[in-house]
Structure formats: C-alpha cells, structure tokens
Design a protein around this nucleic acid. Structure first.
Lengths: 227, 227
DNA sequence: CTATGATTCAAACGAACGTATGAATCATAA
DNA sequence: TTATGATTCATACGTTCGTTTGAATCATAG
C-alpha cells in the first residue's frame, strides 16, 4: 500500500490546518498536530509559510479572496440589472450571505469546513486574526453597506449597520457548528431536518435574516423616564 | 500607599479570570496571567478551584445560575399572567434574551464583561466548555423551546428550533464585542450610537430578533428541480 | 554525469504552560 | 500563649509550545 502521497506539501498543510483550526481553534491547534495530520515534517510550516500566524492568514486568504470577489460580482450584476434603481434588500442579502452559504456545497473551496472555521473565528478572541480579516476585506463590507443604505433610504444608517451586524452573527452561528445547536435541541427533530440538509438551512436562514432586516424600527425609551 | 488589598482571594481570581478569558479566550489565558492580574500567588488557583478547567466552570456558574433562575422566574410570571393562554412570542423572547441583555447594566453580576465572555464562548472551539454549558443549562433551553412551541402553534417545531438558534447567534455577536462590529462600520456612526449605549442596543436587537422569529416561513426548493 | 537550488529531515532550542510540593504565614479557639 | 487548620508562598517538575539549525535528499539544468 502506498504511503501518504507527498504531492504538494503546501496544499496538504493548508488543508490540515483548515480542518484543525476549525475543530480546535487557533490556540488549541499545535504545529505538531497540523504537520502530523498533513503527513509532513514539523519544519515544513515555517519553511513554506514563515510562522503559525502567517499560516492561518493564508488559510483564510485562499478562500476569502475568491468569496469576496464573487460577492462583488454578484452585487455588480444586481446593480447593472437594476439600472440606477435601488436593488431589493433581499437580493443584496443574498449576494452577501447567500454567496457565502453556497460555498458549503463546494468542497473545492473548503466547503462546510471553511464555513465553520470562519464562523468561529469571527467570534474568537485572537486579536490579530480579526484584525487581519477586518483590514483585508473592509472594502467589501463598505460596498454592501452602501448598497443597503440606498436600498433602504427610509431606515437610519445606524440601524442598518447594526442589523448587518446582527445578520453576521446569526449566520456565523448557523454555520459555526452543530455543537452550539445541541444547546437548543435534543435532536428530536426528524432526521431529514438535520444540520446536513444545507439546501434547507439556506432558505431558513435567509427568511430569518430578511425578517430581521425589515423588522419595524425599535422604539427607544426615554433615557430618564419620569417617575 | 496600601498594597493590593488581599480581601477574598477566590473572588479576586474569579474577577480576573472573567476579564481575561473574555479578552483572550480560554487557551489564550494562562494561569500566570490570571494570578498576576488578581495579585495572588500562582498556586492559589489550584488550591481554591483545583484546575484551570474547574476555574472557568466556576466563572460561568457564578453568573449563569442566577441568570437562568431569573429567566425561569420571568417565564413563570408570564405564564401565570396569561392564565392558560399561550404567551406572546415577543414576551418569551424578552424573558430569555432581554433578561440576559439587562445583565450588562449590572456590574455586580459581571456586566458587559461577562456578556462578552459568554457570547464568545458559545462559538469557541474548546469542547469541554460548550459541553459543560449545554449540560448545565439544558432544562432552561427546554422550558423556553416548549413555550415557543405553544406560542407559535402554526409554525413547525423544527423551524422554531432553528430560529431560536439564529437568535442566539445574533445576540452573541451583538454582545461579543465591539471588534466584530468594526468589521461592519468605520464608526462614522455618531457617537451617541456607540456600542456603549446599551439602552439602545437592547430595543434594536429585540426588534431584529422578533422580526426574524416572525418572518414568513421559507420556501424549500425541490431537491432535484426538473430541468 | 555533475552542479545547484529547492525541499525535507531529525534533532534541538529556550520559553511558557498547568500542576504539585513543602515550608512559611495567617486566623482562630482553647 | 499555644495549638491547629486554612491559606499563601517561592520554587520546581515534567510537558508542550513555536521556531531554528544544518545535514540529507530531491529535482532539474548544464
């Protein structure tokens, strides 16, 4: 029987790192785990990437560069079709979150593993990772924010930014893991509704997001209500 | 000038651990960080709590025992007032998420620090922490799930469970940090809308959650659509 | 073939980790 | 005051961490 075929060391490391960072987090994953799982020498990570920090940045870049270009293309298309008119909010949400969620079906782009990694990382404490993501993909966020401002001219911008934030959170949790869902359910839910049914998760999440985005505006109580 | 007053070592450790786990995560926080910040001896954690794992469990238990009892009390009160009739969904959501969010104002119960710790932990990878939370507070989740089932008899239970999950995610993100919000905004938002204005965050999030919970049910596409 | 640069390898580095130990110190009660 | 149990202390243990090193191996071009 053939040993673990060598092939491309770089790619093997990225695949193993993606899977292990997803399962155990950045701090919880050691270089020895990664190189062991990848079947390569311990020194290979530092040789090919320089450091552990540079490695996880490359793990993200490999997937996010494509994702965010795809998001931009989707929004370009929507705005071209609208021909100057504002784009429907639900279509903007789909261009952003739908494009992300549809990566789950594409194993060649990381599939569910990468989605769960991303979901967890956005809430993870490691400072430099979030800083990296925030800096690297700022322009995409700005594009979509502006599109939502135009699509919902009657809604205060601050409200839209907050709701964008809430949508990110709901999406991250939805993809971050089955484990968190166990907190809510005993899995009495019939099997056909399991987490694996991504074709059902996407419409479910989309309905929720649009419902939240279009909810009636909140009533703020007075700061110091009369006695 | 007086040295760091001794007082209650146990409490000092719990306070420091809560703050540091929030800022740097479980794996990213060392015993030496904690004891240093608390101004106690390194061995004090193992003496008072036994281990690092037991410490973080106590950090959570100290806050969550009260929170979940409070949630139960709120739901008890709502169901008593309804007198057999189903309780309004928005009131159930407030009993669960509102009770949580209002902890932010109560420094004696951990305030914003604990909320951010909780939000991050629910998405964090460390297996045993999530397992601990899921086991410890299962009964509360079940109570609220059942209440929502009764409040929304026309909505399939699977849909309600998913939307509960989405609401948890949106809430966690909302409280998990200002940093994640930076991903969305440049803080062009006027200062009075800053993250610190919790009195505004709560109604904002509540509107979003109710909007998502009550959104139209999703339409599932056929599994293999005709060509 | 040989030469050269890229890659892989085993081994080791110092630092930081969680935990354990036994003596010193404290508070309290007889 | 002395005795006793609780707590704090400095220190060290054994592991694991990310990274580095220099030799061995590989692929390719002359």
């Amino acid at each position: 029987m053939t040993e673990v075929r060598a092939g491309d060391t770089r790619g093997r490391i990225l695949d193993a790192a993606e899977r292990l960072f997803m399962a155990h987090g950045y701090d919880g994953t050691s270089m020895r785990h990664i190189t062991g799982e990848a079947g390569v020498n311990l020194a290979a990570v530092n040789y090919h990437f320089g450091s552990k920090e540079a490695l996880i940045q490359e793990v993200f870049r490999r997937r996010l560069d494509w994702l965010n270009e795809e998001r931009m293309r989707a929004l370009d298309k929507l705005e071209a079709e609208a021909g100057g008119q504002p784009v429907k909010p639900s279509l903007i949400v789909d261009a952003f979150f739908g494009t992300l969620l549809r990566m789950a079906d594409d194993e060649s782009r990381g599939g569910m593993t990468f989605l769960r990694l991303l979901g967890r990382t956005l809430a993870e404490p490691s400072e430099f990772i979030r800083a990296f993501l925030a800096h690297e993909y700022q322009s995409v966020m700005d594009r979509f924010k502006e599109a939502l401002f135009r699509a919902l001219p009657e809604v205060p911008k601050a409200e839209i930014v907050w709701r964008f934030h809430f949508m990110l959170g709901a999406t991250s949790y939805a993809i971050a893991g089955t484990d968190a869902l166990r907190l809510v359910t005993d899995w009495q839910i019939e099997e056909e509704d399991s987490i694996d049914r991504l074709d059902r998760l996407v419409p479910r999440l989309m309905s929720f997001l649009i419902g939240g985005l279009r909810a009636p505006l909140p009533q703020f109580p007075d700061r110091a209500p009369g006695s």
